[in-house]
Amino acid sequence: MNNKKSLRQALGEEHVAGYIFSLPFIFGFLMFMLIPMVMSLYFSFCKYDIQNPAAFIGFKNYIDIFHDKSFWKALRVTVYYAFVGTPLKVIFALIVALILARDTKLTGFYRAAYYLPSIIGGSVAVAILWRRMFEPTGTINALLSILFPGMTNFNWFSEKSAIWVLIVLTVWQFGSSMLIFLSALKQINRELYEAAMVDGANKWKQFWKVTLPLLTPTVFFNLVQQTINSFLAFTQSKLITDGQPKDSTLFYTLYVYRKAFPSMGKSQMGYASALAWIMLVIISTVTALLFWSRSKWVYEE
């Protein structure tokens, strides 16, 4: 009886309750984040093929990576994808947000409709659909051949254009950035526009002088988030192009995956872990640079 009471008392205490409620997160964080990360750091210094025990080899993986042509290729492709795709996506999200910011009866519907691609965008089904659309005899070419009769069977999956198939897909998934822009737009004080109007500023000027400066913190947030997402993109590259042709769409994550789980032969999990840690350093550096640039262009009230 006494015991029970004390257990109830213990559970009633605030910090205990706090730990219990955060237990799912702590468990998930340890099991799926921290422990795997520590393990992968260790494996990155090993020759490890999953099926056999890991053998410590020091910095060999890291040294080999710097001589690995495919690594540099994958890095170039990913950086291109991130630095071209992300700004386009953020700009597109902003434009759509500006259009949908006005309140009409159908605005709610449109917002939901334009957000939809982001929900389903990373999915396997969309990736396969995207591939079908851009195939030589797919929908896109069928439409183009109606508009431009001379144009048939254009190969979108050529070395130069294949990456753009993926960039267009990421731009199409602008929904989450758009929602963040929408809420930020609502928070801009109406009085500022009225004051600008009184000063004779037209809509165009209002956008550049009022809206955009006040949105820069949101632009910054979206840019950071989407840049990181772009570096981590995987599904598109794996399913739509499988890195082809000639590794022109070989995303970094796909390269890591291929090393860890090759379609043939032994896994190079140690090498893949080293690649993943290099990616972590790169993303951290890029994010740090973005934060450093913050003071140069982000307007803080």
């Binding site: 042709p245 043939m264 032994k266």
Partner: peptide
């Protein structure tokens, strides 16, 4: 080692 030759060498050279 043959599987690694397939994925790391043959693939690139065929391409």
């Amino acid at each position: 080692y043959a599987g690694t030759v397939n994925t790391d060498v043959i693939q690139h050279l065929t391409e």
